[in-house]
Structure formats: structure tokens, C-alpha cells
Write a protein that binds this DNA or RNA. Structure first.
Length: 647
RNA sequence: GCCGGCUUAGCUCAGCGGUAGAGCAACCGCCUUGUAAGCGGUAGGUCGUAGGUUCAAUUCCUACAGCCGGCACCA
């Protein structure tokens, strides 16, 4: 007998091996009919599974939130059947559930294209219409391999081989079609419903390894209701509207062109925004005890050989050609660290100089693979807000805590309060003694503990020279972006011959902490554009206010207003064009100018302005100086504001 | 880098084996206008680049480049 506890707390006994379906049917046929799966002690299971031990049981109806992943997983199976029935000979591989949908990877000599979607979707609807039950069988390893081999499903044979000994080899059937699968599934294909859509095709390597064959992946989305599907599609459209590449063009911030793939042409407004970020970083890191430096863009390749970068990253570095008159080869710097080590090394350093904090807004170039390029988010030339801090090893924890607090405080100023920290420890391929790693990892963890900050653990994901923390922020529409990093480097200082004189007079190799705040300024600009959907807070907006005249009678006064605003430190422009005010308001609203200062005869006579804010239809008429004082206050950077308030 | 798709006017896009079209923007004129498009006119493209097929290519084919979506990569 098994004792089952129901959600209402009732506890009943049933014979061993009874199925969830039988229990549901015993309670009421309608319950059995609307139940698509069950949960045993909170874990989803097939409704027809035999129950062999005491558990809490719940019946999962199709509209239960937990049914979503089942719908998606079943949809993946239905799609796989549809594809194989339309193109026999196509091999199936894996088809998991992902956020908002599912995919299935196929192997076929002829790849699929989106033009195939209507046929596949039609076939899927037929399969769903047939409403065939999902049934599970457990096969022996040998049998499974034999059957898949005979079907020519070579990838499945590999998957069977990969299943650990002692684990069941489960086969799910839907009618004639079957697939190796961990499950669980709903009771029948009909439960998938109609709220699904195939989204895109993509190449994907077998088992995620670039050395393996390329499969065709078909992505789909599936929902419980058509409303949910429609809403999801709508969300995608909205996200597209905040795409920084589109807003960058619409707001005249930057552009890219063929001759410089992966490099940004910053326009005046975009560069204003970029400089606002640079200036902010300069203030923050100067306050935190960093000194800004600038190291050469080109350095002899021998330095990069010594640092180890040539060995590991040669293919991703830009190198100069050797010339007849000079046999040297230079490297366009892909990182700032070797340069900073040179600055540390220049002149003897004492333990009294530590921590020695060098920061640089260094422009680095990396030959990123062409397929990786993506607007500002992944470029070949970018500006790192980089710093290297030279310390003794007993200073690691304190310095890391300081960096940690600095990073969080900076993100907060930009409205990012949901920040995750990832801790990565020693990778398999690494250099240095385990004892040193031990110390570095412990120091990082102690810093997080003292700062009382939660973190996730990425085993073996550290850099080859040391463990690291990575800072991941979440934007307005819930996307995660990895930005800042703190790394302990136990390698480069030694390799590049850095040392300081300890109290004992000994030469000691310092520990080097590597730290980035935004990471890449280009990328962070892109994140800000998407986060705000172009509606920047006043202190970031490249153009903060537009002075618009009603008629040419106000032209002279408009110029006065603009001049006065500039004296308040505001970034303003004037629109004297012979256009109706409606036209001007519309145009500047679309350009996402945060503040419109409208002036006509009336305002000119009273030395006032009519203020209209982006996103609002409200108009507020204020005396000019008062209005500018308010705006100037708002346009003050958060850190400057804090300082003023403290003073 | 790999797989697939795309590339036509500044932007968004239509078109097609017989050397191109719309809307918006731009420019010119009229209108002096009160908070999201006033009216009229003009101009604008070697159809991504290079080859090939053809009497004829923007259209079909091939290569290359860039971009887009993934995958892989990301010091």
C-alpha cells in the first residue's frame, strides 16, 4: 500500500503501483479528464506513472502554471514528429524546453528554412488533432541502441550511450512515433493546444561543440492560451523598439559601416552620452583612490609573448606588419594590464605604496569572430573602464570589498539595483600553485561574506590566472547583462617582473587585482539605451532641452533662453524653424528630447517658458530662471548631487 | 569561425529577365502658426561588390563583404 496526501491535506491509502490516472478517475471522471500530469512531492510526473511510495500528490490541469513546460516539451516532440513525417531520413537529436518556448535540433543534409514553417505547423496541428496518448516504455540499453541504429538515428545512439549506468532508458511514444526522452509528458498530443508558433531556424553544433557537425535547430514558442501567445509576440515587438541599434540611428547617436566592422562611429549626441559616462567614472574612481593613466596603444609583441597573451589569444589580436626598415611587430593592445604593470615597474615601489591603483579608460581592440558582432554590445574596438590594483596578498579581501561596494554604488546611480554576483573558481587549465589559488578564492569569498552579498557559484569558470567575481545587472525588461568584474591575478605581475620592497627589504611579487566597472563603455551605453528605451534621465540625455518658438516673433527671446540655459550647464538647442508648434512638439518627442521649452509672445513678454516633458501632455509655465534652476538640479549627476547634499 | 536568411533613395519597404516605385525625411515656395504630422512643388538610386549565364541581369547562378537570427567564442 502507498499513502498519498492530497493538496487539501486528506491522506488516503492505495494499492501499490496504482497510477495517478486511476486515482483521479476514482475521484471523478471529470478530474481524470482535465488532468494532464501529476506532481509527486512537487516533482512533475506522467499521470500514468505507477506510484510506488508514499508521497504528496497533486493533479496538474492544463492551465496550471507548471503545465507550461509540459506543453512546450510536448510541442517539441510533436514538431519532431511533424518534421520526420514531412522529411523522412531527418535525424532527431535533442529538443528541450527553454524560456518562453522550445527547440528541437535536427540533422539533415538539406537545412530547413522559415519557408518550411507553414508546412511543419500544419502537420503539427494534424498531430495535435489526432490527440494520441503519450505512452512511456522502458527499454534496455541494447534494445534502444539496436532500434535507433536500425532507424539510422545515429545521434540517438550516442545519446543512449551517454545515459549513465543504472538510469532508466525511457521511450515516449505518440502513435507510431517515438523518441528517447527523460519526460515527463502530458497524457496526449491534443493537450498541446493551438497556441504555438515556430519562430526561427538556426545552426547549432551537436552537443554544443564547434568540432562537431552542425545541426539545424528550429525554435518555437508555445503557451497555454492564444492570449498569452499574442502577448508574447507583442512583447517581442516592444523589445524590438528599444533595440539600441535602431534607437542609435533614430536618435542620431552613432552608426556602423562596412569599412569598420565592429567599430563605432560616434555622432555628436552619442559621444556626448559616452563622455557623460566617462566623466562619471572618472569622478567615482578618483574618489575611490585610483589614479588615471594612459599606456601605449601599440607595444612590441615580445611583451605579449611574455605575458602569455600571444600564446593564448594570438588569433584574436590585431598585429602590425613587420616592415623593411623595422623588423619589429607590434600588437594593438587587447588588454590594459601589461601596460599598467610597466607603469608599476617604472621606479622602485615600496610596500608603503600599496595598494597602488591604476585606472585607464583604455581603448582595446580584439579580433572578435565576425558572427559574434552585435551593435554596441559586442564590438572589436571598445573602451574599458579598467583598473589594476597592486597589493600584498593580505590586502586582497579589503580591496575586493571596496571594489564590490564601488561597483554596486555605481550601478545604483544608473537605476540598476538588481545585481547578481557570480563567483568563479579555478578552471582545469590554470597556472600557479593550488595553495595560492586556495588563498585567492578564500579571499574573494571572505569579501562577499563580509559584504553580506549573495552570490552564485560557477565551478571552474575562473580565468586561467585567478578566480573572479562577475557582476550581472538586470534591466527594465528583465534581461541580464554581465558588466563588471573583479579578478585576482596571481600570474601577470610575476611573469612581467613586477615586485615591491617589503618591510624586510625583500623583493615581493605583488598580487594584481583586475577590475572593470561598466566593463565596456560602448556596451554599457547600449544597455542604457535599451534599459531606458531611449528616454534617458536628464543627466544622461545628450540633448536635454529644445527651445521651440511658436512664431518668429519669439526668435530673439528663444536665443536668450538657450544662452541662459547653457549658463546653467544644460545641453540645449533651439528650433526656430517656420513650422507649427504641433509639428515641432511631435518631432522632438519622437527624437526623445526630455524637455521642450516652448516660447511665444506671451512667454517672451513675461520672461517665462512653457515646459513640456517627454511622455506627458502637461504644460507648466514658469519664470525662466526658476525653470532653469529646477532643470539644472535634475540634470546633476547622482554622485555630484550626493556630494552637494553632504556638503 | 559555423548554419540559415537578408542587402533596392537618408529611413521603412514594394517590384521585376526588357536598365526602377511608394510613404516618411530632405530641398524650394506659400502659410506666422499656442503643445504629437498645414498646403503645394522639386530633387534623389551604377538595385552591397566582383565575376558568370543571356540578345538583354536590379531580377537567374557563383564568389566575396556587411548585416540579421542562432551556435561556438568572449583575456
Amino acid at each position: 500500500m502507498v499513502a498519498l496526501t492530497f493538496p487539501d491535506g486528506a491522506r488516503r491509502e492505495y494499492p501499490d503501483n496504482i497510477t495517478g490516472f486511476e486515482i483521479a478517475k476514482g475521484i471523478s471522471p471529470s478530474l481524470a479528464k482535465r488532468t494532464v500530469a501529476m506532481a509527486l512531492d512537487g516533482t512533475l510526473a506522467d499521470l500514468h506513472d505507477k506510484i510506488t511510495k508514499d508521497a504528496k500528490i497533486e493533479f496538474i490541469p492544463r492551465d496550471d502554471p507548471r503545465a507550461m513546460e509540459l506543453i512546450r516539451h510536448d510541442a517539441a516532440h510533436v514538431m519532431a514528429e511533424a518534421v520526420q513525417s514531412l522529411w523522412p531520413g531527418t535525424q532527431v537529436t535533442i529538443g528541450p524546453v527553454i524560456e518562453n518556448g522550445f527547440y528541437y535540433d535536427f540533422f539533415r543534409n538539406e537545412p530547413f528554412t522559415p519557408e518550411d514553417f507553414p508546412a511543419i505547423e500544419k502537420k503539427m496541428r494534424e498531430i495535435i488533432q489526432r490527440d494520441q496518448p503519450f505512452t512511456k516504455e522502458v527499454w534496455s540499453r541494447e534494445e534502444a541502441k539496436r532500434v535507433f541504429r536500425e532507424k539510422g538515428e545515429n545521434f540517438k545512439v550516442e545519446l543512449v550511450d551517454a545515459i549513465p549506468a543504472g538510469e532508466e532508458i525511457k521511450i515516449y511514444k505518440q502513435g507510431e512515433w517515438f523518441d528517447l526522452c527523460r519526460g515527463p509528458h502530458m497524457t496526449s498530443t491534443g493537450k498541446v493546444g493551438g497556441a504555438f508558433k515556430l519562430m526561427k531556424v538556426a545552426g547549432a553544433y551537436w552537443r554544443g561543440d564547434a568540432r562537431n557537425p552542425m545541426l539545424t535547430r528550429i525554435y518555437g514558442t508555445a503557451w497555454q492560451t492564444q492570449e498569452q501567445l499574442d502577448q508574447y509576440i507583442h512583447q517581442l515587438e516592444e523589445a524590438e523598439k528599444r533595440d539600441h541599434r535602431r534607437l542609435g540611428r533614430e536618435m542620431d547617436l552613432f552608426h556602423f559601416q562596412e569599412e569598420a566592422p565592429g567599430s563605432v562611429f560616434w555622432h555628436p549626441k552619442g559621444w556626448t552620452l559616452f563622455q557623460t559616462l566617462e566623466n562619471y567614472i572618472r569622478r567615482r574612481q578618483s574618489d575611490a583612490g585610483y589614479q588615471e593613466v594612459n599606456a601605449p596603444q601599440l607595444m612590441d609583441s615580445s611583451l605579449w609573448v611574455t605575458s602569455g597573451h600571444m600564446a593564448k589569444y594570438r588569433e584574436m589580436m590585431f598585429l602590425t606588419e613587420k616592415r623593411e626598415e623595422e623588423e619589429r611587430q607590434y600588437v594593438i593592445k587587447p588588454m590594459n594590464c601589461p601596460g599598467h604593470v610597466q607603469i608599476f615597474k617604472n621606479g622602485l615601489k615600496s610596500y608603503r605604496d600599496l595598494p597602488y591603483r591604476l585606472a585607464e579608460l583604455g581603448k582595446v581592440h580584439r579580433f572578435e569572430p565576425s558572427g559574434a558582432l552585435h551593435g554596441l554590445m559586442r564590438v572589436r574596438a571598445f573602451t574599458q573602464d579598467d583598473a589594476h590594483v597592486f597589493i600584498s596578498d593580505d590586502q586582497i579581501t579589503d580591496e575586493v570589498i571596496a571594489m564590490h561596494r564601488l561597483i554596486l554604488s555605481i550601478y545604483k546611480d544608473f537605476g540598476f539595483e538588481d545585481v547578481q554576483v557570480k563567483f568563479s573558481d579555478r578552471p582545469e587549465q590554470r597556472i600557479g600553485e593550488d595553495a595560492v589559488w586556495e588563498k585567492a578564492e578564500a579571499a574573494l569569498l571572505r569579501a562577499l561574506e563580509i559584504a553580506e552579498y549573495p552570490y552564485t557559484y560557477n565551478k571552474g569558470e575562473g580565468a586561467f590566472y585567478g578566480p573572479k567575481l562577475e557582476y550581472v545587472l538586470r534591466d527594465a525588461i528583465g534581461r541580464d547583462w554581465q558588466c563588471g568584474t573583479v579578478q585576482v591575478d596571481l600570474n601577470l605581475p610575476g611573469r612581467l617582473g613586477a615586485f615591491y620592497i617589503a618591510p624586510s627589504g625583500e623583493k615581493i611579487v605583488p598580487v594584481m587585482l583586475h577590475r572593470a566597472l561598466f566593463g565596456s563603455l560602448e556596451r554599457f551605453t547600449g544597455i542604457l539605451i535599451e534599459h531606458h528605451a531611449g528616454h534617458f534621465p536628464l543627466w544622461l540625455a545628450p540633448l536635454q532641452a529644445m527651445v521651440c518658438t511658436i512664431t518668429s516673433d519669439a526668435d530673439a527671446y528663444a536665443a536668450d533662453v538657450a544662452a541662459a540655459a547653457k549658463k546653467f550647464g544644460l545641453r540645449v538647442d533651439v528650433d526656430l524653424r517656420n513650422e507649427k508648434i504641433n509639428y515641432k512638439v511631435r518631432e522632438h518627442s519622437l527624437a526623445k528630447v526630455p524637455v521642450l521649452l516652448v516660447v511665444g509672445k506671451k512667454e517672451a513678454a513675461e520672461r517665462a517658458v512653457s515646459i513640456r516633458r517627454l511622455g506627458s501632455e502637461k504644460q507648466t509655465v514658469m519664470p525662466l530662471d526658476a525653470a532653469l534652476a529646477v532643470l539644472a538640479g535634475e540634470a546633476t549627476a547622482p554622485d555630484v548631487k550626493r556630494e552637494r547634499e553632504a556638503a
